[in-house]
Write a protein that binds this DNA or RNA. Structure first.
Lengths: 212, 212
DNA sequence: TAGATTGTTAATCGATTAACAATC
DNA sequence: TAGATTGTTAATCGATTAACAATC
């Protein structure tokens, strides 16, 4: 899409959702312009960094004025890709899988859940928010194609994670959102994002112990 | 505890849980020694980085031999602080709160859940794994002290997150594990770790769109 | 001992911050 | 216009990688 987008530093990419959050907030509060200085104070980062970050994607500001909140908000929305609909499946309908299925905020941003998959006969057939839990065998290339699935959310125990990831990739899913506490090997054209909860908790634990 | 621990770069701290995971795996598989070279291949990082990282905490290796898996595993366990018991509460017993309450892996690493808190009368009094959901009014300094709570897990909607965080901090909780999609302001002696699920999903979305 | 591999210093790379001319 | 604030280049800072003497 963007010819130079793979040159954008990872650190910048990771800040995009945060910019998006602050701009949403400003927009909701009816603020129509913001300078990098003012935003830097709110976000606790430097104005310089904000300007550098944004200029990876284009010049959205105006000298002497700052940034138009609505415009910048929309621009970042497009940059992230939140203007398009994305269709998801959840693999593993246990605690974590069900919690994500019930979390409707993603739906509001265009991430539509099409199905959950599990191997447990007790779960198969159950409905969550009107979405069915299917047998993992029903996860096929046809299913992915017909439902335009691009994101698979991995909520299985760590020992099954790579197997299930492989299956999803074989069915042409293009993005994996991994909640299993393992590093998954992915195909060249598949992207992955990890939510390593235990890693996060351990980091918190370290900081708690070292801050004394 | 460690006099120089606040000099350890954030990037290194964030890699500690990953080292811990790989060493656990090696240990379980009965491997007793590993060189930085071999580990670097498994983890997909440089041997140099591994040695640099570890040397922030001391010299655990031996020339010509490498690292003793068991020793290094235990050392990292202590560095993170997983050798002590930590007592947690979950504030907000909705989808996310309940999912975390049901996730027993943390318990195995010494993170003991003592109670959940909510304001919803329909939830108050319910038990999850034998742990009660209490009225948020029951969250007091006495409760925190008596149960030696050090970690509060914030699983409330974003509009309540700061209020609830303040309450936890006033009750002397020392660490916040925040699942609300907002940045929380914390007291100087309180540490925080964010699990911004939507940020993570948006990052995945960006990468999916830009990888084409 | 000879080979292997560490701990650590130096070099490189990348990211953040500062500065300022351009310009609204 | 004058003041404000951008976009962008240059300087600084920090993190990663390379190199190698020390030593098991």
């Amino acid at each position: 899409m963007k010819e130079n987008s793979n040159k954008v530093p990872e650190a910048v990419i990771r800040r995009l959702p945060r910019y998006y959050r602050y701009l949403s907030e400003l927009f909701i509060n009816g603020i129509d312009r913001i300078s990098s200085k003012e935003l830097s104070i709110r976000m606790g980062i430097t104005a310089s960094q904000i300007r550098q970050d944004l200029n990876n994607f284009g010049g959205f500001g105006q000298q002497g004025y700052g940034y138009n909140v609505k415009e910048l908000h929309q621009a970042i929305e497009r940059i992230i890709g939140l203007n398009k609909q994305n269709n998801m499946i959840i693999i593993g309908a246990g605690n974590v899988g069900q919690a994500i299925a019930n979390y409707t905020n993603f739906e509001a941003k265009g991430f539509k859940l099409k199905a959950l998959f599990d191997t447990n006969p007790k779960l198969i057939g159950l409905m969550i928010r009107g979405i069915e839990i299917l047998d993992i065998d029903k996860l096929t290339q046809e299913f992915v194609k017909q439902n335009s699935i691009n994101v698979a959310v991995l909520c299985v125990p760590k020992n099954n994670a790579q197997t299930v990831a492989n299956k999803a990739m074989e069915c042409n899913v293009k993005a994996l959102w991994n909640f299993a506490p393992v590093d998954i090997k992915v195909y060249d054209d598949v992207v992955i994002e990890n939510v390593h909860l235990s890693d996060s908790l351990y980091t918190l634990c370290y900081k708690m112990n070292s801050s004394k």
